[in-house]
Amino acid sequence: MISKTDVLINNYEKVVSEPWNQNLSGQEKVWFLVYDPSEHRKVMFRLGDFEQVTRKYHRNWLHVSLADAFPVWMAEHEYRDEYFKSPTEIQDQVETGFRDFVVERIKNTIENATELSNTVLAISDVNALFGFIKLSDVLNDLYQFNKGRMLIFFPGEYHNNHYRLMDARDGWSYLARPITA
């Protein structure tokens, strides 16, 4: 019996093997690999298989994990001790400062890469943003830098061009291409 993760890998292979149209908008160059949040660990365990499939079709692979984004941002924050004393004071900083931190982290990966038009930028652990900032805001700040393809490992759901992260927050409509099991 084939696992859901195997089906995702097979469906991803079909997409990554296609010729790439470079005339798409930045939003249309985004792929959402959509899977049930309960499958997240299984999918992350197979991350290397996604990279291997990408390289099989002579595409470059860049990976950015957002798993530690919030703790790293908080550890570097000038007022972190004050925020721990009064957590309600951090809300404005999270909505702007943390989002900017995440965007810059991904942009730095993009800027340090070569041959971007032939590269899959894989962004995993976007669930670490949940409850802090909206993934849609981060992507809106990034799509103009997307020269190749951006693969978002998305634990959530997709229905009728509408995405919901972690099956909880109201979703948003996005031009990205879904890859489902």
Rank of each mutant, 00 (worst) to 15 (best):
S3W: 02
K4I: 03
D6N: 14
V7E: 14
Y12F: 15
V16H: 07
V16P: 01
S17D: 07
P19G: 01
W20K: 14
N21M: 09
N23A: 06
L24W: 06
Q27M: 11
E28M: 06
K29G: 02
F32R: 02
L33V: 12
V34P: 10
Y35E: 00
Y35D: 00
E39T: 09
R41C: 04
L47E: 11
L47V: 04
E51D: 10
Q52L: 12
Q52W: 01
V53C: 07
V53Q: 07
H58E: 10
H58W: 01
L62K: 15
H63F: 00
F70G: 04
P71V: 07
P71Q: 08
P71M: 03
V72L: 10
A75M: 07
A75G: 07
E78V: 04
E78Q: 14
E78R: 12
R80M: 12
R80P: 06
Y83P: 01
K85S: 14
K85I: 09
I90N: 09
D92M: 02
T96H: 12
F98S: 11
F98R: 02
D100V: 02
V102R: 01
V102C: 13
E104S: 15
I106C: 07
I110P: 12
I110Y: 08
E115I: 00
N118L: 02
I123T: 01
D125C: 04
N127S: 15
G131V: 05
L135A: 07
L139Q: 10
L139N: 08
L139F: 10
N140E: 12
D141E: 14
L142R: 00
Q144I: 13
K147P: 01
G148Q: 02
G148A: 10
R149I: 11
L151T: 02
I152D: 01
F153E: 03
F154N: 05
Y158M: 06
H159R: 13
H162N: 11
Y163N: 06
A168Q: 11
W172R: 01
Y174E: 00
A176I: 03
I179L: 06
